[in-house]
Design a protein around this nucleic acid. Structure first.
Lengths: 218, 218, 218, 218
DNA sequence: CATGAATGAGAGTTCATTCAT
DNA sequence: GATGAATGAACTCTCATTCAT
């Protein structure tokens, strides 16, 4: 039993190694330029070995994609415990962008890359990706109910907010944010989120204490 | 001189033909699937001929990119004659998204695709791309001056607005906007822009007359 | 001794299992498409295990070939008890073709396939294959002695008869007999044999009673 | 015009060279063992060059196959001018076998090899291959009308005769005719054909003068 | 100016086989 | 005895690119 377990763990470690290596190479050179041979060379195995762990190149991509969705989901979940729906949304956006910037290869694979194969992609997206989206919609609804947002079609607002964070993340990932120094990005994101969310309401953002405060004279 | 000119014009016409053909093919099947041979076949020349007009495949891409930036710039210019800065911004965003959705392959090439070669990319972007961005910043400043926006770092607001429209456009281009039926996209974009811009101010959006009206009790 | 025997029997059973499985797969998809891995998967052993019982892929083929020759020999033997040499020959041909059509993959391996390795092939053929051929020759001689055939070189007649049945069998196996419906093949073969054998003599074939009868005026 | 023609001729010569080389290699090592690389090496070109002349490996095979059918058809046509249907059939068979033995690679490809791709194969066969078969049937009919053959289903007799010559040819090609010395094969074939055809009738074969003679009581 | 012909480099993938455990 | 893991050596096929003509 123990032996079998160790074997399985080793197998799993190899898969992980391949995935990690693939991801590093993706980051370096972009997906379209990565070959099975590249990956094999990097991990110092033969190309044929890769095929012992993955059916084909696409499977590696799909696995990484799914992994990405799972990671993102986890990452967001933790930051969704806040009571106030607006602050929750704020945190949610922050987490989303943080994930994207900390895992640009994953993010690219998940939302920016041209889909390699249509069918599976959508299946994947639905599974976990849509779960994330539904979460966002719930949040939006609560904000609307709380009067933070004008009453509108929820899908439109949700999509708008998603577009906002996606736009920020993807422009930065593609190097379009050069006007902000590396170390200023975080605070820029913060302010951008405020620009979107807080100014919509009577509330103000307390920059000192990093929290939203009710407006005085409202 | 006249002969020389005609020669040059012919040369230029051929370049145009190649570019146009390449773009059509890109639109049909996506860049990654287009080969020099494809383009050559379509225009009924030999692949070698392409190389008389373009150094290599990348040059075609770069030229198309620059073309895209020019087209976008033109497209936006026309819609920037409005007096009111907020309405101007609104129109600007609308025009931007419209361009992206009507020319997805250009847009992909300009803002979504991984830069094939670093050096040239940045040169290009600066030239015309940054001109567009500067235009946006001017606009933002005027909105701020007019009290439409909270007073903030202009770069942040400009980048935020850009992110917003980029996010909307690129998610739709990548097929993430499936929750909106094809024919509903335009009105969704409209509402999304309102969500971003109008609700920020005391003003209201007059849906009947398609224009921003001053808020009643302000 | 008993233990050793059991060991050997187990070994032999495993060989049999591998051979049987290989044959089934060959039948399904043709040799060229069968891999050691396929066979291993079917019997739920590892590919490496196959190599404990067979030196290599070729050995499996050779063994099956030999097996085929043995099977054919057995199949023919049963049908060679008839007294009349001509009828015996008729039955012999029928049995040969029947074997081929019922075991197309064996037959392919034995007589149609390109020999994978020269050396072994000939050894095999001589052993049992030639035994069959000698049997045929004896038969032919008896027919000749009985006046059924013109007096000719026995080898030529034997080879001719072999060619005949081989031709019929192999054309059908390769799908060249499409002019005959599946269920009509058997009677076609029957008639073809009559065409060859019976019309050579004064004898007639009694279609009713399925036997050769002496011609009236002989 | 002349230049264009020469170009075309050169192109055609290259195709021919590839086909011829492929055929030689097939003969040497069997189809299944021939690779595009092999062929390329032999003609001292790069593998990619092959693809300028043939879409893929299969196209080479199909072309050779069709070529084979055409060659066979031509070969047979010349020998079908004889008046007497039986002699014509005799000559026909002789020509068939001669073609097979002189062009074993072609013959293998046409009638012995496992079909690489089903669809095209049958198309090809029908076109020219079936033309040959129809020719044979016509011949058989005439023989029957002339009383040389018992009255039977024509398809059965035609198929039987085809089987006969195919059997002879394919056994020899696969090396099963070792009992006949190389130089004796031709006369063996002759006698085998007589065994099949002449002894069926009252006619006799005049070995001296190489012709069939009627003989009532001879 | 245009191109036919050619190719180097490399893509993904498969398979018989080996060997330490 | 059985095998998991690994691989070398191939395979077919594609593509951007070059160059003599």
């Amino acid at each position: 039993m123990s032996i079998k377990q160790r074997k399985e763990q080793e197998k799993s470690e190899m898969r992980t190694l391949i995935l990690k290596t693939a991801m590093n190479l993706f980051l370096e050179k972009g997906f379209e330029n990565i070959t099975i041979r590249n990956i094999a060379e990097k991990i110092e195995y033969s190309p044929a070995t890769i095929y012992l762990y993955f059916k084909n190149k696409d499977e590696i991509l799909f696995t990484l994609r799914r992994e990405g969705f799972e990671k993102l989901y986890e990452h967001q979940k933790t930051s969704l415990k806040l009571d106030d729906p607006l602050m929750r949304l704020h945190k949610h956006g922050e987490a989303y962008i943080q994930f994207a910037l900390e895992n640009p290869e994953y993010y690219d694979l998940m939302f920016m890359m041209r889909g390699p194969v249509k069918e599976m992609q959508e299946t994947n997206d639905c599974d976990i990706g849509l779960a994330s989206y539904e979460l966002l919609k719930t949040n939006v609804k609560e904000c609307m109910d709380a009067g933070h947002f004008p009453v509108m079609n929820i899908d439109i607002v949700a999509f708008s907010l998603w577009s906002y964070v996606h736009g920020i993340a993807s422009l930065i990932i593609r190097g379009r944010g050069i006007m902000f120094p590396e170390e200023g990005i975080k605070s820029m994101v913060e302010e951008a989120l405020n620009f979107m969310l807080v100014s919509k309401t009577e509330k103000k953002w307390d920059l000192e204490n990093k929290q939203i405060i009710s407006g005085v004279n409202v």
